[in-house]
């Protein structure tokens, strides 16, 4: 299916949901993207994986992005059966960012979400094991945020080198 069809099918399926916030950006430079409200990402994800026309069984990548004021989570989805792809995107405010975890749908999201939590501070509601993954467990702050200030000391060691 083309991104156009995927987007139309999604819109038809979730037409009854008022705050779904579907927003397709198909003419975007390079990757066609569909924006979804964070409240409904879990349902959309489930539909994308289980629907016979979609069958997005492969969550290729999950990245956090700091949009200065907002944080985004970007899901790169591929279907091995149908051989089509789509990018799903949710945006949350920087204050107390929380997105439902899709770990129950694609288990690969487990470590990706831990990484996004570690580096961006996005909390994934319903994640079974939300710990830091790349940084030390007692590190403070989330380094990939644009307003991140490097701490002076970490456990008594000088950080900027």
């Amino acid at each position: 299916m083309t991104p156009q069809e995927i987007s139309e099918k999604l819109a038809a399926k979730f037409s009854g949901v008022s705050d779904i916030g579907l927003e397709a950006k198909l003419d975007a430079p390079v990757d066609p993207t569909i924006k979804v409200s964070p409240n409904h990402i879990l349902e959309v994800a489930k539909f994308l994986r289980d629907d016979d026309d979609m069958q997005f069984d492969f969550l290729s990548c999950l990245s956090g992005v700091d949009l200065k004021g907002k944080l985004a989570v970007v899901y790169q989805l591929f279907s091995m059966v149908k051989r089509h792809k789509i990018t799903i995107r949710v945006e949350v405010p920087t204050e107390n960012p929380s997105v439902p975890s899709v770990e129950s749908i694609w288990r690969t999201a487990n470590w990706h979400e831990r990484e996004a939590y570690d580096l961006f501070g996005i909390t994934f509601a319903g994640h079974p094991d939300l710990r830091r993954i790349l940084l030390p467990y007692d590190w403070e702050g989330h380094p990939l945020r644009k307003d991140y200030q490097v701490p002076e000391f970490y456990n008594g060691m000088k950080v900027p080198y």
Partner: peptide
């Protein structure tokens, strides 16, 4: 590059 995003694998 123009503003935009790409995922290439």
């Amino acid at each position: 590059p123009n503003p935009g995003e790409v995922y290439a694998r």
